[in-house]
Computed example of a mutant assay.
Amino acid sequence: MEHLTVPGTLDSLSEIAKYVLSAASAAGLDKKASYRLRLAVDEIATNVIIYGYEEANLQGNLHLEAKIDDSSLTIQMEDNAGAFDPVTKLAVEEENINLPMQQRPIGGLGVYLAIQGVDRFLYERVGDRNRNIFIVNLH
């Protein structure tokens, strides 16, 4: 599939969603798997835009690439915001899930839900870029 590069702004989220759903359709994912993948990419993209760009007073793009092979659909998303590994945030969110309801902070489960929605999630820091990799098995 063709790559997608969009500005790192909230206005780009609908275009990112269309790209992800198009890739999911091309890979033959069912509606449930397609939705979970779109939700996962949307959550991480939103975090990059809000925390990596807007709150850091930075501007940048999000670059997405979809790859389909015999066994999986992979969506790779790169940005040039400050280093942020969502897996480290996952550990905090998993701790919060185990707290009694009254002690849980409001919100703060987006990364957990995103990563749980795909079969594999990987993070890499490559030079000055974050690379978030979402993998959904086809079989």
Rank of each mutant, 00 (worst) to 15 (best):
I16H: 02
G52W: 01
Q76L: 14
E2A: 12
D128T: 07
G127P: 05
P105C: 06
H63P: 01
Y35G: 00
D42N: 06
A81E: 08
A45K: 00
D119Y: 01
L122R: 10
G107N: 11
L122G: 05
G110D: 14
D30R: 02
N137P: 03
V87F: 03
S72I: 10
I68T: 12
L10E: 14
A66I: 07
N130K: 04
I16Q: 02
S14I: 15
L37F: 04
T5L: 03
E54H: 01
E15I: 11
V87M: 12
S12F: 09
I97V: 15
A45Y: 00
A27D: 09
G117S: 11
L99N: 08
A27K: 02
Q116W: 02
L113H: 08
V118E: 04
L122Y: 13
L64A: 11
P100I: 11
L58C: 08
G108R: 09
A27G: 07
G60S: 07
P86N: 09
L138C: 04
L90C: 09
G110T: 11
N132D: 15
H63W: 09
G82S: 11
I68A: 04
Q116V: 07
H3E: 12
E65R: 00
F121W: 08
E65S: 07
I68E: 06
V6S: 03
S34A: 15
H63M: 09
Q59N: 13
D119H: 07
D69R: 03
A40E: 00
R131V: 14
P100C: 12
D119R: 00
G127D: 15
D79G: 05
A40I: 04
I50A: 00
A91I: 13
A26F: 02
E124Y: 08
D85R: 06
G8C: 02
I49G: 00
E95W: 08
D69I: 07
R129A: 09
A56I: 08
E124K: 12
N96S: 02
D79Y: 04
N137S: 14
Y19H: 06
L138P: 11
Y53M: 06
H139V: 13
T9P: 01
E78K: 15
Y112A: 11
V6F: 04
M1D: 06
D119V: 03
A56E: 15
N130T: 11
L10Y: 07
N61F: 11
R36S: 11
P105T: 08
E15N: 10
A91R: 09
A27N: 08
V111D: 02
L90M: 10
P86H: 09
I97P: 00
Q76I: 15
A33Y: 01
L58R: 15
I44W: 08
A23C: 09
N96T: 09
M77C: 05
N96H: 11
